[in-house]
Amino acid sequence: MALPVVKGTLDVLVLKALTWQPMHGFEVTAWLEARSGRRLALEDAALYQSLYRMEKKGLVKAEWGVTEHNRRARYYQLTPAGREQLRQQVSDWLQYADTVTAILTDPSPAR
C-alpha cells in the first residue's frame, strides 16, 4: 500500500535527490521510487510542479543537456540557496518527526 506524500515534503525529497548529481525529471522520479521502495504514492506531475516552483525561487537551476541515449533533457541541479534550504528543512523535519513520534509513543493512556 503506497503512502500519500505529506504536503510540503515533496520539495525536500527532490532537493535531497539532487544532492547526488544533476538529474532530469525522470531520474529524480526513479531515484525517489528506488529509495522509497515504491512506498510513496507520488504523482509525476506534482514532481514537475515542485521542480518549476523551486527553480523560480532559485533553489534549483536547470539547463538543457543530452541523456546517455542522446535524448534532449532538462537537467536540474542544486543552487547554494537550495542546499541551504535542504539543510534547514531536513533539520526541521527531523525535529518535527521526533516530537510527533514522542507524543504518539507516550505510554500514558489518552484521556
Binding site: 504523482e43 506531475a45 514537475y48 523560480k56
Partner: peptide
Amino acid sequence: RLFAASDATMQALRSTAQARDTSM
C-alpha cells in the same frame, strides 16, 4: 496514470513554468 496526465495538469504545469520564466 503514474504521471496523472490530463489536459488540466499539463495546463497547470505550463503556467507554473511560465511564472518561473517570467520571474527568472
